[in-house]
Design a protein around this nucleic acid. Structure first.
Length: 402
RNA sequence: GGGUCGGUGCCCGAGUGGUUAAAGGGGAUGGGCUGUAAACCCAUUGGCGUAAGCCUACGUUGGUUCAAAUCCAACCCGGCCCA
């Protein structure tokens, strides 16, 4: 029994940054196994952006491990909080969403999370926090706010930094940690998962639960996945992300574009490979980095599609980028056979966003027609069936005369 | 409420009457080199136009001027200090 629990802890610890606190987790797991009962594992989701990417899956994968051990995932859709705005202060101009948008986002979010999570009824519970927050009275809110001091709130790293940098910190931002903590009380969570950026909020949950007479949840923090640029965290707004719904070829290509020193991290957080194996793959003396990266890309594509698709994506990648051949699936653009100026043709094929950009591209010898580089943006092109226009390395269009 | 500083392109930031589509940096994109890696080198980075050129842009609105991101006024928004 004790051994089994130790084994579970070992598994659950993989890839985590910190567990508050490990011995409590061990107690909970032991108690759950004895009773028996399912632990309730909380994860808060922000439905302001509908698409989830690999950064989200780091935490979702951890959640899946808990599910596989028999526990229950409780997803909290922060629909109420989303209506107010962004707590991180990253982007003050973020538009406030309508109920309809939020609901829509939550729905797609859920579908996408299902690619990682076990969605069967006894393993997953989805709750919207408007369910209880909407009903909260001002008095109740004041009582909640009375549980924490201002000094405690100012401990939060992002508040501290922003104050030091003389950036804005709005009063309502203090309410987010409190509300999230209150979520934990309502759903009686045993464990809360989150990225390290959520550490403060999630720890507030522990205090709030205690203040409301509950046992404190265990907080497990996961690393923030670095985005494709290798610098900032993966996020949709920064455009450095791999979405779980990205096309296989796209997904594969994006993984291939990460820098070598990010590979180990990606292997650890995004695959189930054992640590020893990863160490071998990440060591350039033992494995050629390109080869290791191909494996990583295949593993990732396989997770969201299947192995055969991953193989195809790998073959396609090799064909287009290693051998410089054309990809199989080039978007077809219908066009009349009238001669057209090159710069206009590019816009028409949606290969550039403006004709000014098109002209620049041509001048920079980025454009080729049927594999022949062109240099005059004003050249008249006579469209032919099957003619292939290429801009840069990865933008293609095939013409079809209508 | 008072004082003071500020609001510039995707971001940061220089510019204080004309030579400003606006220095410099970051980012991004294209080319070279490669393994669509990193590093490095070169180039591009508002729109329309075949071109000459035209249009739009420095918080908002109005004004002064031949000419305004730059001067004036009012307003909106924010930081800091004081209360």
């Amino acid at each position: 029994m004790a051994e089994k629990i130790a084994e579970q802890i070992r598994l659950l610890k993989r890839g985590t940054i910190e567990i508050f606190k490990e011995d409590e987790l061990s107690e909970k797991l032991t108690e759950a196994a004895k009773t028996p009962r399912q632990l309730r594992i909380k994860l808060g989701l922000d439905p302001t952006s509908p698409d989830i990417h690999l950064g989200h899956t780091v935490v979702l994968r951890k959640m899946r491990q808990f599910q596989d051990l028999g526990h229950k995932a409780v997803l909290i859709i922060g629909d109420y909080t989303a209506r107010i705005g962004d707590p991180s202060g990253q982007n003050t101009t973020r538009p406030t969403l309508t109920d309809e948008q939020i609901r829509q986002n939550a729905k797609t979010y859920f579908t996408q999370a299902g690619k990682v999570l076990d969605t069967s009824d006894d393993r997953l519970e989805v709750r919207y926090n408007s369910e209880w927050l909407e009903k909260m009275s001002l008095m109740e809110l004041i009582q909640l706010a009375a549980k924490k001091t201002v000094a405690q709130m100012l401990q939060r790293d992002s508040f501290k930094k922003r104050l030091a940098a003389e950036d804005d910190v709005y009063t309502h931002e203090f309410l987010y940690p409190l509300m999230q903590g209150y979520d934990s009380v309502v759903i009686e969570s045993d464990v809360e998962l989150g990225g390290t950026d959520q550490t403060f909020n999630n720890l507030v949950g522990r205090d709030i639960q205690r203040a409301y007479g509950q046992t404190s949840q265990i907080v497990i923090t996961m690393p923030i996945l670095v985005g494709l640029d290798g610098k900032e965290k993966m996020s949709k707004s920064k455009g450095n992300y791999i979405g779980v719904t990205d096309e296989p070829n796209d997904m594969f290509g994006k993984v291939m574009s990460i820098s070598d020193d990010m590979m180990e991290n990606y292997f650890t957080l995004l695959t189930d490979l054992p640590a020893e194996k990863i160490a071998k793959l990440a060591n350039p003396d033992k494995t050629h980095p390109k080869k290791a990266k191909v494996l990583l890309a295949k593993k990732i594509v396989t997770q969201f599609y299947n192995e055969a698709t991953a193989q195809l994506a790998a073959a396609q990648f090799d064909k287009v980028f290693a051998q410089g051949q054309l990809p199989d699936d080039i978007p077809v653009v219908k066009i009349s056979s009238e001669p057209i100026m090159a710069s206009k043709l590019l816009v028409l094929c949606d290969l550039t966003s403006s004709s000014s950009e098109a002209k620049r591209m041509v001048k920079q010898s980025a454009v080729s027609i049927n594999a022949n580089k062109i240099s005059d943006p004003n050249a008249e092109i006579t469209p032919k069936d099957g003619m292939v226009i290429q801009v840069g390395k990865r933008r293609f269009a095939r013409l079809k005369i209508k």
